[in-house]
Amino acid sequence: MKIVVAYAWAPDPQEASVGADGQVDFSRAKPVVSEYDAVAIEVGRQLATATSSALVGISVGGPATGTPVATKAALSRGLDEVMVASDAALADAGTTRTAQGLAAMVQRLGDVSVVLTGDSSVDSGSRMMPPVLAGLLGWPVLSDVQKVSVTADGVTVERLLREGVQQVSVTGPVVLALASDATQPKAPGMKDVLAAGKKPVTKLEVADLGPAVAEGTVVSTAKLTGPARKGIVINTADPAAAAAELVGALRAAGVIGSTGGQA
């Protein structure tokens, strides 16, 4: 049996800069295995150890994804092996194209019981990749997973939803997106760093991933501008006076009621 973790080697958009024309420059942002994906790897490690399964990382991305430092970084977090497809043609791949590549990898690996993913990808944040991946595989999928335990014929999953804590039992293979606080990922240790280079890496070509899906055509880009803010500075030398001034202003704007509370 294999447990698979889908991860991305991506820079944090918070470190990117955005030009006046809306072009995003990632040249100064360092790619990493995101903290969300680190959670998935950590949970995968625990599951794989408990079930004596192999833990395989899979990743689809631009040329940086396939560099030795990228695969070693992922492996140093506890994966047993990785399978990657990295190509300039995949650098800007959308959710569906990425999911398609990941699905091709899961099928190629075979004998996979669970595919784990992080809560969201740092670079898109739409949290749509796991549902599309599951749809392509024809597998069920659950998000916001807090706990996973392996049963005789599948997994039991605990999810934290708005409605409350939900337990779901699943038979057969499944895609699970882990909540960002499902576990606290540990930094790789020094031995893990040195062991990473000795683990197997399988590289796939773009052609191995199936024909590309249609992507939209980018018509234009722009810098995101928020609404103009007033920037009124209230003197806080006397807190009571400052509070009275603020409350007066909010009441005058009609956004809070005259006796406190909502208008």
Binding site: T95, T96, Q100, M128, P131, A134, G135, S143, L161, R162
Partner: peptide, 22 residues
Amino acid sequence: RKPAERVLLGGAAAALQAPVVS
């Protein structure tokens, strides 16, 4: 964007081989 909504939408995107935009 709620969890179950995203999963149903993902099922549609996969069946249609359609790109996703958020």
